[in-house]
């Protein structure tokens, strides 16, 4: 079995257990408040880390390319209240233009 397939199967099984935990096991009960708070907070640092490492780290070393300009433009779109599609399209367009202009 290839590594991607192995990861797929284990991740799918684990994810399904997380998804089904509420409806199947907990029923109508609530998570303890401290735990619910942590679960609610967790995506923020994880997503932030994904943004930062995808833009600033390549193969274990700090590196920057034209996508950083695209992401900065995306941040402006979000700041101005733009939705998901404009944000992603602007990031792609600005990155493409920077590359056209000769940026890395």
């Amino acid at each position: 079995m290839s590594t991607p397939t192995l990861v797929l199967l284990v991740l799918a099984a684990g994810t399904y257990l997380l998804k089904a935990a509420g409806p199947v096991l907990l029923g109508n009960r609530e998570l303890p408040p401290r735990l619910a708070d942590l679960v609610d907070l967790l995506p923020a640092p994880l997503l932030g880390a994904l943004v930062a490492t995808s833009l600033l780290v390549d193969a274990g070393a700090y590196a920057v390319d034209a996508r950083l300009g695209g992401a900065a433009a995306a941040a402006v779109v979000l700041w101005r209240g733009g939705g998901f599609i404009p944000t992603v399209l602007v990031a792609a367009a600005v990155t493409a233009l920077l590359r056209l202009a000769g940026a890395a």
């Binding site: 994904l50 833009l55 979000l78 792609a92």
Partner: peptide, 11 residues
Amino acid sequence: ATIPAAFLALL
């Protein structure tokens, strides 16, 4: 570049 931008939009 859509990938980091998408993560940013999610965040």
